[in-house]
Simulated assay, not measured.
Amino acid sequence: MRIGIVIGTGHGMDGTTGSLVRELLDRIGAHVDQVRTEIVGTDDLGLGPSCPACLACMTAGEQACPNYDRTAAARRLLDDSDLVVFATPVHSFHVSASMKRFVDHFAYLIHRPAHLGKPAVLLSTAAGAGHDAALGYLKTAVRRWGFHTVAQLGVNGPGLRKPAYRAKVDAALDEIAGTAVEAVTSGTEPTPTTADLIGFRVARLLVRNTTENGPVDEAYWRERGWFDAEWFTDTKVPFVANKIAALVEGRIRAGIEKGSADPYRG
């Protein structure tokens, strides 16, 4: 099994987050004869203070990104792995800054998902709270890239010194390892949810409305037949969820055409 690790901390595999990843890998190794791992540290990619937001990856293709060469190792990892583990410390109730930069530099995958059906595991560590925001953000982001999250775990670092909490983390890691292996070996893609189907339709709408400025996206979708599909793959789409997604799409389309969409006010 080929496992890719994207770890969002300058401590790499030596800190609390890296230790949690290693513990998961050890447990996966107990289920699989051979495990090959590849690790990319987001701090080591040299992506600069932030994504330049030039949109070149959207309009001209990912190779037009000024940091394209710096993300080469990460692209190979995402492409070649059977399972990808995304791990981040929680910084100020969110993912680390370098993990956020990493996600931003793969924004084109929101328009051109390339990892459909591939399982992901999400891990976070914190001295306090924030796992919900950090893991929730990662789950949403990688889902738009095509990944489906099969398990997630947020761990309180100081709590690991307490036997009762440590036992709960160990039990969770045991369960996650089995789930991850099953996800890879079965190759089963989960049924798309209502949110997934809405995301598909909104992405399709955006690609259709920006063909003049985004011919790369249009060609990608047209080549795969997605303009005439109900989902990215042949997985059966739930009838009711699809109808709800269609209604939402219609309202969004009308709002865009009439300019009547409301600004966000919380």
Results as ranks from 00 to 15, higher is better:
Pro190Leu: 03
Tyr108Gln: 11
Val248His: 10
Glu62Cys: 14
Gly199Asp: 12
Glu249Trp: 11
Leu25Ser: 00
Ile110Tyr: 14
Gly18Gln: 02
Ile198Leu: 07
Ala164Lys: 14
Ile198Tyr: 03
Thr179Ala: 06
Val207Thr: 09
Asp170His: 13
Gly4Tyr: 04
Ala261Pro: 03
Thr16Val: 02
Thr235Asp: 06
Thr191His: 06
His11Asn: 09
Ala167His: 06
Ala219Glu: 07
Gly8Trp: 01
Gly255Glu: 02
Arg166Thr: 03
Glu23Leu: 05
Val32Tyr: 06
Gly48Lys: 08
Pro119Trp: 01
Leu205Glu: 10
Phe93Thr: 07
Ala254Val: 04
Arg70Gln: 14
Val155Pro: 01
Leu45Thr: 10
His31Gly: 02
Trp221Asp: 02
Arg201Phe: 10
Pro215Val: 08
Leu55Val: 13
Thr59Asn: 07
Cys57Pro: 13
Arg112Glu: 07
Leu247Ser: 09
Ala30Cys: 04
His31Ala: 07
Gln34His: 14
Ala129Pro: 04
Cys57Asp: 11
Met13Leu: 15
Cys54Leu: 10
Gly46Leu: 09
Gly130Tyr: 00
Ile244Pro: 08
Asp80Lys: 15
Val155Asp: 00
Phe232Cys: 07
Leu77Lys: 12
Arg112Cys: 08
Ala30Asp: 10
Ser98Cys: 09
Arg101Ile: 12
Ser19Asp: 02
Val21Ala: 02
Ala245Cys: 04
Gly41Asp: 00
Ala172Thr: 00
Ala87Lys: 01
Thr59Arg: 15
Trp145Glu: 06
Asp80His: 12
Arg204Asp: 02
Thr194Lys: 14
Ser92Thr: 09
Leu205Thr: 09
Leu206His: 14
Glu189Met: 14
Arg208Ala: 12
Ala60Lys: 15
Arg224Asp: 02
His31Glu: 13
Thr233Val: 04
Thr191Glu: 13
Ala73Val: 12
Asp43Cys: 12
Glu212Val: 14
Glu62Thr: 10
Val181Ala: 05
Ala141Thr: 13
Glu62Tyr: 10
Gly178Pro: 02
Val85Cys: 01
Arg201Trp: 09
Gln63Asp: 13
His11Arg: 15
Lys139Cys: 11
Gly41Ala: 03
Gly136Tyr: 05
Ala127Tyr: 12
Ala172Cys: 05
Glu38Asp: 11
Asn67Tyr: 14
Gly18Leu: 00
His148Leu: 05
Pro163Gly: 15
Thr37Arg: 06
Thr37Gly: 00
Ser92Leu: 14
Ile39Cys: 06
Pro163Leu: 13
Glu249Tyr: 11
Asp33Gln: 10
Ser260Val: 09
Ala133Thr: 11
Ala141Asn: 09
Pro49His: 08
Leu122Lys: 05
Leu247Lys: 12
Thr235Asn: 08
Ala183Lys: 00
Lys118Leu: 06
